[in-house]
Design a protein around this nucleic acid. Structure first.
Lengths: 187, 187
DNA sequence: AAACTTATGGAACACTTGTTCAGGTAGTTG
DNA sequence: CAACTACCTGAACAAGTGTTCCATAAGTTT
């Protein structure tokens, strides 16, 4: 094992994390080699060294962000996956984690223009289907679509909705899915 | 009436339309004074002349795009507003008009970072509520959220969904709203 | 510890960007 | 038709961009 490579891997990840922070703060438009380097506290040319092109850096950030989204979802499912849990998570996403959510959607749209990124962007959707094994696929797809819509609309609301406002909507979507299996399967 | 001003107004609008075309093609990232000028067939400095800053140009484009979205929605409502009509519209948005839809969502997110743009970005939502006067506001909000979700998820699907795939989902969302006003499936 | 390899970073380059500005031009007015 | 004014634009500039390159430092192997 080469210690040099290990250190490199670490710095590489630090750069990706810094990129996500830059996007949270200034949007994808604010991502430049220099701004990322400043944020990560590495030399100006480090991002160029680790990522052939600026695009590659954004792609790596999207992939990493996609992983995090999946992790978050697993946590929600693990904690029961009730309407209340989901509503709390959504409320957090558009309030405390507003910047992060905004960043995730900017990266989401990036995938709209890069076919090779699509699988990563929608990984959480596939994972959700796999975990829930919905009895009524149509209702479940409506539910998943509404999640995205609630988040994105929460981002452009004058005051972002809180848990209590979201809960009835989420509840409606779950109930509508199939009354007999109101709660998603646990593991 | 000064003919000079009339001509200016026309050119101003041409620049905004060119901006939207650039966003469709290359994304917000591709918008520069020069790229817009090239697209509109006007001198390089014309965009700067008509819009104090590049931001102002994007803002004007968002406002114009918001108007168009509202127009489209009015058309759908005028044509009956059935699940089938809505599904056809959504299918068009993620297929024939894919670029346009992508552009609209990029501008949407722009509003997430510019509070003053939020009202314009969600105008179609307010208009929808006004037109529908929903009996069940919770269900209607779920429906509106799902619209956004279906579009954005359609943009990152490997193959965008067509009218027939969307119709059951839209239908489910409308039916859930209020069983007594369920729309009979045609075709 | 010497030889070797790989990671690293500062300086530099060519390029594009947003924006300024002074002059010219077209439409309006007396 | 001459004077005027408001609109418009081409050239130019300073600032910031992505990326290259090579000298150097750091780590590994012999």
């Amino acid at each position: 094992m080469d210690g040099r490579k290990a250190r490199g891997e670490k710095k590489r990840r630090a750069i990706v994390e810094a990129t996500l922070r830059v996007i949270e703060r200034e949007g994808v438009a604010g991502v430049t080699h220099r701004s990322v380097a400043r944020e990560a506290g590495v030399p100006t040319t480090a991002p160029t060294y680790y990522f052939a092109t600026l695009d590659d850096l954004l792609i790596a950030t999207l992939l990493w962000s996609a992983d995090e989204i999946c992790d978050d979802m697993l946590k929600i499912v693990a904690s029961g996956g009730t309407a209340g849990e989901i509503a709390r998570s959504l409320a957090q996403a558009v309030n405390e984690n507003r910047g992060r959510t905004l960043a995730e959607y900017e990266l989401y749209l990036l995938a709209g223009r890069r076919p090779e990124l699509k699988p990563a962007a929608r990984r959480w959707l596939d994972l959700a289907v796999e975990l829930a094994r919905p009895a009524d696929p149509v209702a479940f797809r409506a539910f998943l679509a509404a999640i995205d819509g609630l988040l994105i609309q929460g981002l452009i609301a004058d005051v972002a909705p809180n848990e209590d406002e979201l809960e009835p909507i989420v509840s409606f979507l779950i109930r509508g899915r199939d009354d007999s299996t109101a709660v998603p399967r646990e593991e």
